Amino acid sequence: MEKSKVYYTSFRTTFQENLPQKLKRLIKTAGMLEQIDFQNKYAAIKIHFGELGNLSFLRPNYAKVVVDLVKDQGGKPFLTDCNTLYVGSRKNALDHLETAYENGFSPFSTGCHVLIADGLKGTDELLVPIDGEYIKEAKIGRAVMDADIFISLNHFKGHESTGFGGALKNIGMGCGSRAGKMEMHNSGKPHVIESLCIGCRACYKNCAHSAITFEERIAYINHNRCVGCGRCIGVCPVDAVESDFDEANDILNYKIAEYTQAVLKDRPHFHISLVMDVSPYCDCHAENDIPIIPDVGMFASFDPVALDVACADAANKQPVMAGSILEKHGSHHHDHFKDTHPDTNWKSSVEHAVKIGLGNSEYELITI
């Protein structure tokens, strides 16, 4: 198979070219405007608006670059995401829109409207048959599937379940309706290590399914109610919650790849990833920790798989940031994301994506 082209530029600027201008040049050089006909077409630009309190999400200025390029070509762009499975500031369309606006993603700052793809309560979905190994019928937010063209604008960062969050995570998990997210998460159920639990109730406050109870200040998880979203794992301050199954995170990655296939098939698509503010956790958290590595640069490709691999390879060449979680954990696997979250395996998502024909793990990096 011929290597996929991934285009890259650093965050270095000059007096003649700032970062938005450099991103514009990257996108144009990568061929998005030449290879996709935007005239009178609806273009979904999938982005993460960031949980309230999180400050590592992409600035809306970057979204405006993509929006303006699409509009210049006669297209009709909109920014979009789907509601979350967990309790937070983006669990329904009203809260989600308020969060997006508060974080700067308004029509006035970005030049286009924001549509929450799966509707008011996360139930406005389209069933997309794919007959995959793990998913037979993906549940995707309707507005995403109604678009003629799909563009992903990704903040590349660490993730407690998938190793990192890049293009595949932003597309597959991000475009799933609430029921779709539940389907992707339900392969493994977490449990509480009683000797570590301090009874802080952070897990209880963040469980959207009333699956957590307390006995003598120790948390217990009812697996009949638990959907396996892993939110309790992420919010526990003492790592007292862990997954029951070693294979759960791999299966989650496989399902994300198949959901990504459902989103992208049979229509033009393009992908942009910014490797900056590489926080150890997802932007779904209501906080962001010290980045685990320095900022790397901006990447773009028609192949989301090659894009993720190129970003991971570039990130793994970076030094560890002093004072970060990664420095605390130490280097054992020669992989910054595996070292940050030892129970994850980001390569499983890539391998399955290649297996199902979603993209290519071999890439040619073109620096501009």
Rank of each mutant, 00 (worst) to 15 (best):
I45D: 07
H223V: 12
K169D: 04
S109I: 10
I233P: 01
K71P: 02
Y363S: 09
V263W: 02
H352M: 08
C311P: 02
K328R: 14
K71L: 08
Q39L: 13
S301N: 04
A262L: 09
C282I: 03
N360H: 11
L168S: 02
Q35T: 11
K181Y: 06
P129K: 14
L326K: 06
T80D: 08
K41W: 01
S106H: 04
E133T: 11
T14F: 05
N40F: 01
M298D: 05
N249L: 15
E364N: 14
L120W: 07
S4H: 08
I130H: 09
H271K: 06
Q261P: 00
A211L: 07
F57Y: 15
E125S: 13
E137D: 11
S361W: 00
R217V: 06
G165V: 00
I171T: 11
S161Q: 15
Q73V: 02
S349W: 00
T13I: 15
Q35L: 13
V350Q: 09
G188Y: 10
L94A: 12
K71F: 01
N253D: 13
F164Q: 04
S324C: 11
C236K: 05
M145W: 06
M321F: 04
D72R: 08
F337K: 11
Q39P: 00
I325M: 15
K41C: 02
F214T: 12
Y259I: 08
N222P: 05
K189Q: 13
M145F: 04
I212R: 10
M1Y: 10
V241F: 07
S89I: 09
K24F: 08
R267W: 02
S177R: 05
P280N: 04
C112S: 09
S349R: 14
I140D: 09
V278Q: 03
I116Q: 07
A202F: 09
P237I: 10
L274H: 06
E258Q: 10
P280Q: 06
D295N: 15
A306L: 08
P294D: 07
V241G: 06
S273T: 06
S210N: 15
I366M: 01
P294H: 02
Y254L: 12
L252R: 15
C311M: 01
S195I: 00
G75Y: 01
R225S: 12
L97N: 04
S324D: 11
E98V: 10
Y134N: 13
C226H: 07
D148K: 07
V128E: 10
S348M: 13
